[in-house]
Design a protein around this nucleic acid. Structure first.
Length: 233
DNA sequence: ATCCCGAGGG
DNA sequence: CCCTCTGGAT
Protein backbone atom coordinates (compact mmCIF):
# COMPACT_ATOMS: atom_id res chain seq x y z
CA UNK A 1 0.00 0.00 0.00
CA UNK A 2 1.16 3.52 -0.71
CA UNK A 3 0.92 4.76 2.89
CA UNK A 4 3.58 2.23 3.88
CA UNK A 5 6.77 4.11 3.20
CA UNK A 6 8.48 2.50 6.14
CA UNK A 7 9.06 -1.08 5.12
CA UNK A 8 7.48 -1.88 8.46
CA UNK A 9 4.08 -2.86 7.11
CA UNK A 10 2.35 0.08 8.76
CA UNK A 11 2.12 3.79 8.00
CA UNK A 12 4.40 6.35 9.67
CA UNK A 13 3.31 7.70 13.04
CA UNK A 14 1.70 11.16 12.73
CA UNK A 15 4.42 13.55 13.84
CA UNK A 16 2.36 16.26 15.53
CA UNK A 17 0.35 13.70 17.53
CA UNK A 18 3.60 12.02 18.54
CA UNK A 19 5.08 15.31 19.68
CA UNK A 20 1.93 16.26 21.58
CA UNK A 21 1.99 12.99 23.48
CA UNK A 22 5.68 13.27 24.25
CA UNK A 23 5.15 16.84 25.41
CA UNK A 24 2.65 15.54 27.91
CA UNK A 25 4.84 12.70 29.07
CA UNK A 26 8.13 14.60 29.26
CA UNK A 27 7.21 18.18 30.22
CA UNK A 28 10.72 18.74 31.56
CA UNK A 29 12.51 17.76 28.37
CA UNK A 30 15.09 20.42 27.58
CA UNK A 31 18.76 20.97 26.91
CA UNK A 32 20.50 19.40 29.90
CA UNK A 33 23.83 21.09 29.36
CA UNK A 34 24.44 24.02 31.73
CA UNK A 35 25.36 27.26 29.95
CA UNK A 36 24.92 31.01 30.19
CA UNK A 37 26.14 32.14 26.76
CA UNK A 38 26.25 30.75 23.20
CA UNK A 39 30.00 30.26 23.67
CA UNK A 40 29.47 28.13 26.77
CA UNK A 41 26.83 26.00 25.05
CA UNK A 42 29.05 25.54 22.00
CA UNK A 43 31.93 24.36 24.18
CA UNK A 44 29.70 22.15 26.35
CA UNK A 45 28.17 20.52 23.30
CA UNK A 46 31.54 19.79 21.74
CA UNK A 47 32.59 18.20 25.03
CA UNK A 48 29.43 16.10 25.27
CA UNK A 49 30.55 13.59 22.64
CA UNK A 50 30.43 10.07 24.07
CA UNK A 51 29.86 11.38 27.58
CA UNK A 52 26.82 12.15 29.69
CA UNK A 53 25.62 15.72 30.09
CA UNK A 54 25.89 15.30 33.86
CA UNK A 55 29.63 14.73 33.53
CA UNK A 56 30.04 17.68 31.19
CA UNK A 57 28.25 19.87 33.72
CA UNK A 58 30.72 18.73 36.36
CA UNK A 59 33.74 20.06 34.45
CA UNK A 60 32.40 23.19 32.75
CA UNK A 61 32.28 25.43 35.86
CA UNK A 62 36.00 24.94 36.38
CA UNK A 63 36.63 25.20 32.65
CA UNK A 64 34.83 28.53 32.28
CA UNK A 65 36.29 29.87 35.49
CA UNK A 66 39.82 29.36 34.16
CA UNK A 67 39.11 30.24 30.56
CA UNK A 68 35.99 32.43 30.40
CA UNK A 69 36.05 33.13 26.67
CA UNK A 70 37.59 32.16 23.35
CA UNK A 71 40.68 34.32 23.87
CA UNK A 72 41.64 32.55 27.07
CA UNK A 73 40.80 29.13 25.71
CA UNK A 74 42.80 29.64 22.53
CA UNK A 75 45.84 30.47 24.68
CA UNK A 76 45.33 27.67 27.20
CA UNK A 77 48.17 25.27 27.80
CA UNK A 78 47.36 21.88 26.32
CA UNK A 79 48.32 19.88 29.43
CA UNK A 80 46.37 22.14 31.75
CA UNK A 81 43.29 21.89 29.59
CA UNK A 82 43.66 18.12 29.37
CA UNK A 83 43.66 17.85 33.15
CA UNK A 84 40.37 19.68 33.42
CA UNK A 85 38.80 17.62 30.64
CA UNK A 86 40.18 14.26 31.76
CA UNK A 87 36.98 12.91 33.35
CA UNK A 88 35.16 13.26 30.03
CA UNK A 89 37.19 10.77 28.04
CA UNK A 90 38.84 11.65 24.71
CA UNK A 91 40.48 14.38 26.74
CA UNK A 92 43.50 14.90 24.46
CA UNK A 93 41.37 15.14 21.36
CA UNK A 94 38.86 17.36 23.13
CA UNK A 95 41.55 19.71 24.45
CA UNK A 96 43.07 20.05 20.99
CA UNK A 97 39.64 20.48 19.48
CA UNK A 98 38.60 23.21 21.92
CA UNK A 99 41.74 25.22 21.37
CA UNK A 100 41.28 25.05 17.62
CA UNK A 101 37.65 26.01 17.96
CA UNK A 102 38.49 28.99 20.17
CA UNK A 103 41.19 30.14 17.75
CA UNK A 104 38.80 29.91 14.81
CA UNK A 105 36.14 31.86 16.69
CA UNK A 106 38.67 34.64 17.29
CA UNK A 107 40.11 34.72 13.80
CA UNK A 108 36.96 34.27 11.80
CA UNK A 109 34.21 35.75 13.97
CA UNK A 110 35.90 38.24 16.27
CA UNK A 111 35.34 35.93 19.22
CA UNK A 112 31.58 35.69 18.70
CA UNK A 113 29.65 32.50 18.05
CA UNK A 114 27.92 32.79 14.67
CA UNK A 115 24.15 32.26 14.69
CA UNK A 116 24.25 30.50 11.36
CA UNK A 117 24.30 26.79 10.55
CA UNK A 118 26.83 26.91 7.75
CA UNK A 119 29.20 29.18 9.65
CA UNK A 120 28.96 26.95 12.73
CA UNK A 121 29.65 23.77 10.77
CA UNK A 122 32.72 25.38 9.21
CA UNK A 123 34.25 25.74 12.67
CA UNK A 124 36.70 22.96 13.51
CA UNK A 125 35.23 20.33 15.81
CA UNK A 126 31.68 21.47 15.12
CA UNK A 127 29.47 19.04 13.25
CA UNK A 128 25.90 19.42 12.22
CA UNK A 129 24.54 18.02 15.44
CA UNK A 130 26.49 20.49 17.59
CA UNK A 131 25.59 23.35 15.28
CA UNK A 132 21.88 22.61 15.55
CA UNK A 133 22.07 22.34 19.34
CA UNK A 134 23.61 25.81 19.55
CA UNK A 135 21.17 27.31 17.06
CA UNK A 136 18.12 25.89 18.78
CA UNK A 137 19.07 26.34 22.41
CA UNK A 138 21.26 29.44 22.49
CA UNK A 139 19.81 31.45 19.60
CA UNK A 140 16.21 30.28 19.44
CA UNK A 141 16.55 29.31 15.78
CA UNK A 142 14.72 26.02 15.09
CA UNK A 143 17.16 23.18 14.57
CA UNK A 144 16.84 19.41 14.25
CA UNK A 145 19.53 17.59 16.19
CA UNK A 146 19.92 14.10 14.80
CA UNK A 147 21.85 12.23 17.41
CA UNK A 148 21.73 8.51 17.98
CA UNK A 149 18.33 8.72 19.70
CA UNK A 150 16.59 11.05 17.26
CA UNK A 151 17.84 9.01 14.31
CA UNK A 152 16.71 5.72 15.80
CA UNK A 153 13.27 7.00 16.82
CA UNK A 154 12.69 8.68 13.47
CA UNK A 155 13.33 5.35 11.79
CA UNK A 156 11.15 3.38 14.18
CA UNK A 157 8.32 5.90 13.81
CA UNK A 158 8.53 5.59 10.03
CA UNK A 159 9.60 9.18 9.44
CA UNK A 160 12.81 8.17 7.73
CA UNK A 161 14.66 5.12 6.53
CA UNK A 162 17.98 6.93 6.43
CA UNK A 163 20.99 6.12 8.56
CA UNK A 164 22.73 9.24 7.33
CA UNK A 165 22.03 12.09 9.79
CA UNK A 166 21.70 14.82 7.17
CA UNK A 167 19.17 12.82 5.15
CA UNK A 168 17.30 11.89 8.32
CA UNK A 169 17.23 15.58 9.26
CA UNK A 170 15.63 16.39 5.90
CA UNK A 171 13.03 13.66 6.40
CA UNK A 172 12.16 14.84 9.91
CA UNK A 173 11.87 18.43 8.70
CA UNK A 174 9.30 17.26 6.17
CA UNK A 175 6.91 15.84 8.78
CA UNK A 176 7.43 18.11 11.79
CA UNK A 177 6.37 21.80 11.89
CA UNK A 178 9.39 24.07 12.11
CA UNK A 179 8.44 25.73 15.37
CA UNK A 180 8.52 22.32 17.07
CA UNK A 181 11.93 21.22 15.83
CA UNK A 182 14.13 22.12 18.78
CA UNK A 183 11.91 20.92 21.61
CA UNK A 184 10.63 17.87 19.73
CA UNK A 185 14.21 16.65 19.50
CA UNK A 186 14.63 17.01 23.26
CA UNK A 187 11.47 14.99 23.76
CA UNK A 188 12.57 12.30 21.34
CA UNK A 189 15.90 12.10 23.15
CA UNK A 190 14.17 11.81 26.55
CA UNK A 191 11.91 9.12 25.16
CA UNK A 192 14.79 7.30 23.53
CA UNK A 193 16.78 7.25 26.76
CA UNK A 194 13.92 6.17 28.97
CA UNK A 195 11.61 4.01 26.86
CA UNK A 196 12.55 3.52 23.22
CA UNK A 197 15.96 2.01 23.92
CA UNK A 198 18.30 0.88 21.20
CA UNK A 199 18.07 -2.75 22.26
CA UNK A 200 14.88 -4.17 23.68
CA UNK A 201 12.70 -1.04 23.64
CA UNK A 202 10.06 -0.88 26.39
CA UNK A 203 7.11 -0.97 23.99
CA UNK A 204 4.83 -2.07 26.82
CA UNK A 205 5.42 1.27 28.55
CA UNK A 206 5.30 3.45 25.45
CA UNK A 207 2.65 6.13 25.02
CA UNK A 208 3.17 5.94 21.27
CA UNK A 209 2.46 2.22 21.00
CA UNK A 210 -0.80 2.55 19.04
CA UNK A 211 0.80 4.96 16.56
CA UNK A 212 4.16 3.32 16.09
CA UNK A 213 4.80 1.16 13.04
CA UNK A 214 7.62 -0.54 14.95
CA UNK A 215 5.53 -1.46 17.98
CA UNK A 216 6.41 -5.02 18.93
CA UNK A 217 8.93 -5.37 16.09
CA UNK A 218 11.97 -7.28 17.26
CA UNK A 219 12.81 -8.07 20.85
CA UNK A 220 11.15 -5.83 23.43
CA UNK A 221 11.70 -5.40 27.13
CA UNK A 222 9.31 -7.66 29.09
CA UNK A 223 9.85 -5.60 32.25
CA UNK A 224 8.86 -2.44 30.45
CA UNK A 225 6.59 -1.16 33.20
CA UNK A 226 9.18 -1.53 35.92
CA UNK A 227 11.90 -0.14 33.70
CA UNK A 228 9.97 3.10 33.50
CA UNK A 229 9.92 3.46 37.28
CA UNK A 230 13.65 3.12 37.83
CA UNK A 231 14.61 5.45 35.02
CA UNK A 232 17.29 8.04 35.74
CA UNK A 233 16.22 11.59 36.59
C1' DA B 1 30.34 -5.92 28.24
C1' DT B 2 27.95 -1.93 26.90
C1' DC B 3 26.52 2.58 26.77
C1' DC B 4 27.13 7.77 26.76
C1' DC B 5 22.82 13.71 22.61
C1' DG B 6 30.19 13.15 18.11
C1' DA B 7 33.66 14.62 14.73
C1' DG B 8 37.45 13.98 11.73
C1' DG B 9 40.04 11.22 8.92
C1' DG B 10 40.96 7.14 5.96
C1' DC C 1 31.48 3.02 4.69
C1' DC C 2 34.88 2.19 8.50
C1' DC C 3 38.06 3.49 12.38
C1' DT C 4 39.94 6.25 16.24
C1' DC C 5 39.93 9.06 20.21
C1' DT C 6 38.97 7.89 25.88
C1' DG C 7 36.96 7.47 30.76
C1' DG C 8 33.33 6.52 33.99
C1' DA C 9 28.83 4.45 35.21
C1' DT C 10 26.02 0.54 35.24
Amino acid sequence: MSSDRTGLGRPPAPAVEVDDRLTEQWPDARCELDFTTPFELLVATVLSAQTTDVRVNQVTPELFRRWPGPAGLAAARQEELEQVLRPLGFFRAKATSLRGLAAALLEEHGGDVPADLDALVRLPGVGRKTANVVLGNAFGIPGITVDTHVGRLARRLGWSTEKDAVKAERDIAAVLPRERWTMACHRLIFHGRRVCHSRKPACGACVLADLCPSYGVGETDPEAAEALVKLPE
